[in-house]
């Protein structure tokens, strides 16, 4: 299978899955944006009414954090289960196992595109104008996507070999939500050392902050750190893709017999 054939197949699987999903619900495609907005609404009520957040413009601050976190968490969790769920196909075809997490992550990319457009509309409505710094969104989104691919592929391999990894990954995503500044500001921790520590060692916190720096504070992200993250996750992605290719038949046996 050539690379273009492989990519278009993953894309077709993603599009078909989106279409099937939309046909399953009365509100169809609208759920792509209703769901993340409902999450934001719940968090907004909790943090403004009950916990009384002091964060300036908390609604857009929370929207950026929550939308990016949800994209990462849902795509990685669903990708982690994708080889196991694809065992019907695996039993009949000798296909690359990376196809399954890739299709799921591609599906999440389409949904996220709609969420991004709506987020930008809300930002503009709230007086955050489009500036030249918005160009930095392109490398940030690219690194974010590579990060999701790398984590999704690793998750899919682990869950296929030992199913017990799946609840651990779900729990890990909850941990990441609390640790990555989804509803708190990483630059407001009281000590610059603490902020540095979180931004250096938690890639999701760095990515969330990079989006906020561009969209809310019109500031470019730390390009050196962004490049370092890109290289780390690209290396991880290439490494896990190689492992998945080498162990394709072992993964098939695990998917079919575990």
């Amino acid at each position: 299978m050539s690379f273009s054939q492989y990519y278009f197949l993953a894309d077709a699987m993603a599009r078909m899955s989106l279409r099937a999903d939309a046909k399953r619900f009365f509100l169809g495609y609208l759920w792509w944006i209703i769901e993340p907005f409902l999450y934001v609404a719940v968090f907004y009520v909790v943090f403004t009414v009950i916990l009384v957040s002091r964060q300036e413009d908390f609604l857009v601050f929370l929207m950026i954090g929550k939308f990016i976190y949800l994209w990462f968490a849902k795509a990685v969790t669903q990708a982690s289960n994708s080889i196991v769920l694809g065992k019907g196909l695996i039993s009949k075809l000798n296909i690359p196992k990376t196809l399954f997490p890739l299709a799921v992550i591609q599906e999440s990319l389409y949904k996220q595109a709609a969420v991004f457009f709506l987020l930008f509309a809300v930002l503009i409505y709230n007086g955050y104008g489009i500036t030249m710094n918005w160009w930095y969104l392109l490398p940030v989104i690219a690194v974010n996507y590579v990060m999701i691919l790398a984590c999704g592929y690793v998750g899919a391999t682990l869950v296929c070999i030992v199913r017990d990894f799946f609840p651990l990954i779900s729990l890990g995503m909850l941990f990441m939500m609390f640790m990555s500044g989804v509803f708190w500001n990483v630059r407001d921790l009281g000590s610059p050392e603490k902020t540095d520590l979180v931004l250096t060692y938690n890639p999701l916190a760095f990515i969330l902050d990079a989006y906020r720096q561009i969209l809310l504070y019109d500031t470019p992200p730390d390009i050196t750190h962004l490049l370092a993250l890109f290289l780390v996750f690209l290396g991880m992605l290439l490494g896990i893709s190689w492992i998945m290719r080498r162990t394709s038949q072992f993964l098939a046996l695990k998917a079919l017999t575990a």
């Binding site: 078909m16 099937a20 399953r24 196909l89 075809l93």
Partner: peptide, 11 residues
Amino acid sequence: LSLGLGFKPEL
């Protein structure tokens, strides 16, 4: 020769 590859009932 595989029957019903990737069939999605909604489609």
